Computed example of a mutant assay.
Amino acid sequence: MRAWPAADSRRRTAAKERADLATLQLGVRYRRVFVLLLGVIISVSAVVVLMGTIGLFAETRSRPLTPSEQNQYKQEEIARRWQAWPATGVFPDEVKYLGLDRAQQYAKRVGIAPETECAKGVDASVAGVLQNHGCVTMLRATYMDQTASFVITVGVAVLKDEEARVSAGEELTQDDRVGVLPVAFPGTVSERFGPDQRQRTSWVGAGPYLVFSTAGYTDGRTRAAIPPEEILHSELWPAAKSVGNQIAYFLADPPKVPPCTQGNVC
């Protein structure tokens, strides 16, 4: 039987409506999946950001320093003093020392030498040890005792760290004829102070520093010209060691450590 045109048109319309409805329902399902996926992504991102913010806050907020951090602070502060301090901070204008009968006296600074390479500020046998252990630089200054009878050169060898200083110290010779080279300043009581005028030398360790000291007479007498008994009983050497030890103490004096990572308030 031949279908009427109107009936056929209604069937095509109904089929199209069913197809449109199916497409719409599929689109709704896709949209729901997309919205759900987007919500998950946003939620995860928010959690990550929140955790990162909490972690950053925990890392940056002020808190008490651990014993390890306190020790590191001290080491770093001491190690940078040779650069952070002015030359007159490393070598004060006056340094206390003990004279005869343990009387307190003051050595007066004569002058400060320009910074130099480690090998150029000490004897060759000492230079090799310092270079092998990464000596950074050499600082030197000359003092005279309170009576202007003695001159004392103090040399500060800056090592890369305290461990290197300890290793270098273990290899240094105990020969008291070698050590830091004297620094003479023309027109002063130290002008005749040279290597031959050194009576004795020594050194002491302090932080990453090896602090050398050597002393002689302002009248230019050589070591060979001094009787051994006078060298042993002279006031010269105790004064020289005391001045060197004082400067070593200044350099390695433990700094005050802040209790917290951001100052005094945790």
Rank of each mutant, 00 (worst) to 15 (best):
residue 109 R to I: 00
residue 130 L to K: 01
residue 87 A to M: 11
residue 142 T to Q: 03
residue 176 D to I: 04
residue 129 V to K: 04
residue 155 G to N: 00
residue 88 T to D: 11
residue 92 P to F: 03
residue 97 Y to I: 02
residue 202 S to C: 06
residue 99 G to V: 01
residue 69 E to L: 08
residue 110 V to K: 02
residue 246 Q to V: 07
residue 223 R to M: 07
residue 28 V to E: 13
residue 71 N to E: 15
residue 163 E to V: 14
residue 19 A to F: 12
residue 180 V to I: 08
residue 96 K to V: 10
residue 260 C to P: 05
residue 211 V to K: 02
residue 181 L to F: 06
residue 238 P to K: 04
residue 178 V to T: 09
residue 4 W to R: 15
residue 126 V to G: 02
residue 262 Q to P: 05
residue 249 Y to S: 11
residue 40 V to I: 08
residue 255 P to W: 07
residue 85 W to N: 06
residue 147 T to W: 02
residue 44 V to D: 02
residue 264 N to Q: 15
residue 2 R to Y: 09
residue 53 T to I: 10
residue 17 E to M: 12
residue 156 V to G: 01
residue 75 Q to S: 12
residue 238 P to I: 01
residue 225 A to Q: 15
residue 131 Q to Y: 03
residue 249 Y to I: 04
residue 71 N to V: 12
residue 120 K to F: 09
residue 2 R to D: 11
residue 57 F to A: 13
residue 188 T to W: 02
residue 191 E to N: 02
residue 23 T to C: 12
residue 10 R to G: 08
residue 18 R to D: 10
residue 246 Q to E: 15
residue 200 R to F: 14
residue 4 W to I: 13
residue 128 G to F: 00
residue 220 G to V: 08
residue 17 E to P: 00
residue 237 W to K: 09
residue 27 G to V: 00
residue 137 T to H: 08
residue 168 A to P: 01
residue 255 P to L: 02
residue 7 A to Q: 15
residue 54 I to H: 07
residue 94 E to S: 15
residue 97 Y to A: 00
residue 244 G to H: 03
residue 32 R to C: 07
residue 118 C to W: 01
residue 226 I to W: 02
residue 92 P to Y: 00
residue 259 P to D: 13
residue 117 E to L: 12
residue 46 A to H: 01
residue 103 A to M: 12
residue 60 T to P: 00
residue 206 A to T: 10
residue 205 G to F: 06
residue 73 Y to P: 00
residue 87 A to R: 14
residue 23 T to F: 11
residue 180 V to N: 07
residue 33 V to N: 11
residue 130 L to G: 00
residue 27 G to M: 06
residue 80 R to A: 15
residue 7 A to I: 12
residue 187 G to P: 08
residue 110 V to H: 03
residue 60 T to Y: 10
residue 163 E to T: 15
residue 79 A to G: 08
residue 23 T to A: 15
residue 68 S to P: 05
residue 120 K to Q: 14
residue 152 I to G: 00
residue 48 V to S: 08
residue 97 Y to R: 04
residue 245 N to A: 05
residue 231 I to T: 09
residue 225 A to S: 09
residue 27 G to K: 09
residue 213 S to F: 07
residue 108 K to P: 03
residue 185 F to W: 04
residue 51 M to E: 10
residue 119 A to W: 02
residue 222 T to H: 03
residue 101 D to I: 09
residue 104 Q to P: 11
residue 111 G to R: 06
residue 144 M to F: 00
residue 140 R to F: 06
residue 24 L to V: 14
residue 266 C to T: 05
residue 240 A to Q: 05
residue 48 V to D: 05
residue 218 T to H: 04
residue 138 M to W: 00
residue 57 F to I: 12
residue 257 V to D: 07
residue 70 Q to S: 10
residue 171 E to D: 06
residue 243 V to Y: 08
residue 21 L to V: 10
residue 176 D to A: 09
residue 33 V to M: 13
residue 40 V to R: 02
residue 8 D to A: 15
residue 156 V to H: 01
residue 252 A to S: 11
residue 63 R to I: 03
residue 234 S to P: 13
residue 129 V to A: 02
residue 15 A to S: 09
residue 234 S to Y: 07
residue 237 W to H: 09
residue 82 W to A: 04
residue 239 A to S: 04
residue 44 V to G: 04
residue 97 Y to D: 05
residue 254 P to K: 07
residue 13 T to Q: 14
residue 182 P to N: 06
residue 54 I to A: 14
residue 24 L to W: 10
